[in-house]
Computed example of a mutant assay.
Amino acid sequence: MHTKVLIIGSGAAGYSAAIYAARANLEPIVVTGMQPGGQLTITTDVENYPGFISIQGPELMEQMRLHAEKVGAKIVDDEIKSVKQLDGCKFKSYGNYNDYHSDAIIIASGAQARWLGLESEKKFQGYGVSACATCDGAFFRNKVVAVVGGGNTAVEEAIFLTRFAKKVMLIHRRDKLRAEKIMQDRLFKNDKIEIIWDHAIEEILGEENPKRVTSIVIKSTKEESAQEIKVDGVFIAIGHAPNTGVFKGFVEMDEQGYITTKSGTTLTSRSGVFAAGDVQDKIYRQAVVAAGTGCMAALDAEKFLEE
């Protein structure tokens, strides 16, 4: 398959890039990847995306896909396994079902939250279990929530959640935090936060109708004791992993695997290759930010192709 611009990924960044690229007559192809629609497809209510007071995550992504198709983007359900540059600045990307030749590439393959790996965690994702406090914190106004983790992300999320929750319990499997000292100081000074040291979540319990979290079972990491604690929500904050394994050695990345881009642009270390969304954003991780960088990538690609 041939295209001027191949867009790898189908989250907010990928679809936004597709809309702008299609409107520029670049006839883009979007390869959806292993999770069509990205992380928003495992989110229930979205109340912070401009233009929608409240919308289900999967519905928002379906609207973006329809918009991209309406303006001329071709969307293919496939997954890219490897990418290489050919002579003459062309690119060839190898998928499970097709090979793709392109003049430019926009990498928008996103990132994934690291989860605990519990069956009950998966069961209640979107129904009280979240990996994004800024996305879902407002749903837990005046409620009790637990945050799992001990790094900067966990501490930041715990502090942020005190804006809404009446109580936040930070559960950490060790007896000290990895977070920066200044963040720890803020945490310890916050009266709404209780730290439960040397414990890990063993199971998340809840109800079916309506589906919601009601409590967690935590187990000591030093002895066999376990206890059940009533909570309304659980926030997993043990980090994110960008979906960039395919591009190692192809474009420059930081030590965490995020693609590095030139400040104020979506330009990567390789001419003709652009990165947008959570593959290069480890700070904000919001759909609206991803959509904005998707727009930037399409405009950067258009300029590149003109030159």
Score class of each variant (00 low, 15 high):
residue 221 T to V: 11
residue 262 K to E: 15
residue 38 G to P: 09
residue 157 E to A: 08
residue 34 M to I: 15
residue 67 H to K: 12
residue 243 N to I: 07
residue 130 S to H: 07
residue 185 D to C: 05
residue 89 C to I: 13
residue 46 V to D: 00
residue 239 G to K: 06
residue 278 D to H: 10
residue 85 Q to R: 13
residue 81 K to T: 14
residue 225 S to H: 13
residue 295 C to K: 11
residue 90 K to R: 15
residue 139 F to N: 08
residue 44 T to E: 10
residue 145 V to C: 04
residue 206 G to Y: 04
residue 256 Q to W: 09
residue 2 H to F: 14
residue 106 I to C: 03
residue 253 M to W: 06
residue 67 H to P: 11
residue 19 I to V: 15
residue 89 C to G: 14
residue 93 S to A: 15
residue 137 G to A: 08
residue 123 K to A: 06
residue 173 R to S: 03
residue 217 V to Q: 10
residue 263 S to A: 12
residue 295 C to D: 00
residue 39 Q to N: 07
residue 107 I to Q: 02
residue 102 S to M: 05
residue 198 D to Y: 13
residue 157 E to I: 05
residue 85 Q to Y: 03
residue 77 D to V: 08
residue 100 Y to M: 02
residue 179 A to Q: 03
residue 236 I to W: 05
residue 62 E to M: 15
residue 259 I to M: 05
residue 204 I to T: 10
residue 97 Y to H: 14
residue 15 Y to T: 09
residue 126 G to N: 07
residue 222 K to V: 13
residue 102 S to D: 06
residue 147 V to T: 03
residue 125 Q to M: 14
residue 172 H to W: 01
residue 148 V to N: 04
residue 133 A to H: 08
residue 100 Y to V: 02
residue 275 A to F: 10
residue 112 Q to S: 15
residue 230 K to F: 11
residue 14 G to V: 05
residue 268 T to P: 09
residue 187 L to K: 06
residue 211 K to Q: 08
residue 243 N to E: 01
residue 221 T to N: 05
residue 70 K to W: 04
residue 242 P to L: 10
residue 301 A to L: 02
residue 173 R to V: 00
residue 195 I to L: 13
residue 115 W to A: 11
residue 304 F to H: 14
residue 269 S to W: 04
residue 262 K to S: 12
residue 90 K to G: 11
residue 239 G to R: 02
